[in-house]
């Protein structure tokens, strides 16, 4: 019995390692804001930069989703529904992870870091503060890259879209990444048996921030002063 138990655990570590290393390998490249030096430094420029960045990152994130084990086996409408629900959570989680080593700043891109003062000038202060709350939470926990990529996959598969056709297939995908996280924590943080749960319990805050962000950018869209690319607009409209 002890041998069997050991073998099962080893097998599960191998399975976990496979999913986690697959997710690590699928991580998109770094993004750069490359903001236009010809534009005056005002709120419109900042928001234009953010919207352009978000649009380019969305393309990368869709490519990333396609690498998720099992995602491409879902029906195309279900793939769309998951992304339409979780796209902002994925964008925010990436900003949060990039910002873990920054001091009270959000690293929107390698070359685009925003502090509270700049956020205030852009009308983003509330959102900035909310995202920093999540940054502080993960920093206190010492969030690792492996955990970040797995959480991102959980956020995608846990999008709670009301229009999923094949709920069992989406649930199967979610179970796979959830199990990978649990196995990772068992093998790397065995001294904290509640760590996987603690990480999953951060997802409601992520969803709350994401809803705020969508609401904010919808108002920016309605205002009509900031140019937005089509993919970003499509997804804003999906919410």
């Amino acid at each position: 019995l002890p041998q069997m138990h050991k073998r099962t655990r080893t097998e599960s570590y191998i399975a976990e390692n496979k999913v986690v290393s697959h997710l690590l390998g699928a991580e998109p490249e770094k993004v750069y804001a490359m903001h236009d030096p010809a534009l005056p430094d005002d709120d419109i420029k900042a928001l234009t930069t953010l919207c352009d960045l978000a649009d380019r990152e969305l393309v990368l994130n869709i490519g990333w989703a396609k690498h998720l084990p099992g995602f491409s086996s879902l029906s195309l409408p279900d793939q769309m529904r998951l992304l339409q629900s979780a796209w902002m959570e994925i964008l925010i989680l990436r900003v949060v992870f990039r910002s873990l080593d920054a001091q009270d700043c959000l690293v929107f891109a390698e070359d685009y870091v925003m502090d509270a003062e700049q956020a205030k000038q852009t009308g983003l202060l509330e959102l900035h503060g909310a995202i920093l709350q999540l940054v502080r939470k993960y920093r206190a926990m010492g969030l690792e890259r492996e955990e970040f990529v797995t959480l991102k996959a959980i956020a995608l598969t846990n999008s709670d879209s009301m229009h999923i056709e094949d709920i069992d297939a989406v649930q199967g995908l979610q179970d796979c990444v959830h199990e990978a996280l649990q196995d990772y924590e068992r093998s790397h943080h065995g001294n904290d048996p509640r760590r996987a749960g603690k990480l999953i319990m951060t997802l409601p805050l992520l969803r709350q921030i994401s809803a705020k962000a969508v609401q904010y950018f919808c108002s920016v869209k309605q205002d009509g002063r900031v140019p937005m690319h089509k993919l970003f607009l499509e997804l804003l409209e999906a919410n």
Binding site: G63, K66, H67
Partner: peptide
């Protein structure tokens, strides 16, 4: 799908990461 043409196209595109 009609309202989400770009998302649809990117998901259908056989290359995994480029738009």
């Amino acid at each position: 799908t009609e309202r989400h043409k770009i998302l649809h196209r990117l998901l259908q595109d056989s290359s995994p990461a480029d738009g």
